[in-house]
Each structure stands twice: as structure tokens, then as C-alpha cells.
Write a protein that binds this DNA or RNA. Structure first.
Lengths: 103, 103
DNA sequence: CTCATTGGTAAGGCATGACTTACAGTAAGC
DNA sequence: GCTTACTGTAAGTCATGCCTTACCAATGAG
């Protein structure tokens, strides 16, 4: 039921960029910040949002923190869309039959 | 390639509510606004965002404007997620093999 | 023709969010 | 131990977004 946070998290271009960067392989905050235009603290804040949305996970490794993709958030979003998808199709069916009756 | 606008559009709770209301059947602006907490102009502005994201379509009917679901936006989002989904899985595979080598 | 209904747009206020710099804390290297 | 590297948090600034009221255009009803 966390699809709301997922929408919010992925609505931001920078957060999408960070998220997509993590698809390649797990990365530290510094590595992620090196590929972004914004500052490192900004990346930290974005990672916090992504973590709340269950899109990433952290694993402290000594001095550094290794961030990696967590599929839970995407799964929530996918379930939300799947539920909608059937509703959309049935809505189309209802609309079509409605038009066939009216026209 | 409009998934960015779709994320932005569906990140707002009111817009999600409007969008979900349209799943039942096409509705006019007044009907939609009657079921929302915000004012009618606010609903109009939300509908504009949803329309930009290819999530709804309009059909003027005399005095009124009938809004209905348009699946294009959801389809874009779905394609984006599908592409990610395979990447997520392959990323997991890489991560697993990486851990098997290291530990 | 006149008035009411419907709905989009403009302008302004206010809250939220994204970014920055500064600071604090913890682990690593010497 | 002392310094350096890595990262999260706090505080403040600035832009963006959402909402409101006011206004205007177009259609329908009488």
C-alpha cells in the first residue's frame, strides 16, 4: 500500500536518475553524488525519500553506506497499476456498450 | 516517453482520486468537483495536468465537457516499469553472483 | 433576447519541496 | 591518538505547486 510514496519518489527527475543508476550495481553515496548535478547532501536526502518508498535499501559497510535497489516499492506500484489496468479495460467495455446503446 | 508526466500527475492524492473516479464512468467537471474537497477551478487545473499526462481525454458535449479515462499514460508508465523490472531482476542476479564470489 | 449553467483562465497567497552551506559523528589510515 | 574520508542532519533560502476568489466565454433554457 506504499504506492503513494512511490509516485512521490519517482516524480522527481533527480531521484529517478539516482534510482536508475542503482540498477547497474549497488553504489555508495559518494559514487551516486559524483554522477549527479546536485550536492552530496541533496543526494542523501533523495536517498531517504527513496528508502521510505521501499525503492532502495542500505547496507552499512564500515565507513561507507552501500545503497542498492529494493524491489518492494516497484512491486507495490505494479500491483496498483495492475488493479487499475483491469478497471480501465472494464471501463472501456462499459463505455463501448454505452455508446452502442446511445448512438 | 511521457512517464515523467504520469508520475507527476499521479503523485498528487487529489488527482489520483479524480482519476479513480473516472474509472467508474466518464464524468463532467461539476460531477467530479462535487466529490472532491477542493473547488471546481482546482479540479479543472488537475484535469489539465491529467490530460497532459495522457491519462484522461475530453469530449465537449454542448455546454459541458465530459472527461474520461485515456489509457495512453498508464501504458507509458507500464512500459517504463516493465523495462525496469527486467533490469531489477538482472541486477539481482548480478548481486547474487557477486555475493557468492565475495563470501 | 435575456438569464442561468457550465467550465476554463488569471492573479495572488500560502505551503511544500529541493537545494545549499555548516556542522556532527563514525570508521579508516598513518 | 590524530587526522582524513564518508555520510547523515540542521537551518535557511528559493522555487514550485496547490488552492482560492474573481472574471470571462460559450451553451441552454425560458
Amino acid at each position: 500500500m506504499a504506492y503513494a510514496e512511490v509516485f512521490t519518489a519517482l516524480a522527481d527527475p533527480t531521484r529517478r536518475h539516482i534510482f536508475e543508476a542503482l540498477l547497474e550495481c549497488p553504489k555508495t553515496v559518494g559514487e551516486l553524488a559524483a554522477n549527479e548535478v546536485v550536492s552530496r547532501p541533496a543526494v542523501s536526502q533523495h536517498l531517504k525519500v527513496l528508502e521510505t518508498a521501499q525503492l532502495v535499501a542500505v547496507e552499512p559497510q564500515g565507513n561507507r553506506r552501500l545503497y542498492s535497489i529494493k524491489s518492494d516499492g516497484l512491486e507495490d506500484l505494479r500491483n496498483y497499476l495492475d488493479r487499475f489496468w483491469s478497471d480501465v479495460l472494464s471501463a472501456y467495455g462499459a463505455e463501448i456498450s454505452r455508446r452502442m446503446n446511445n448512438h
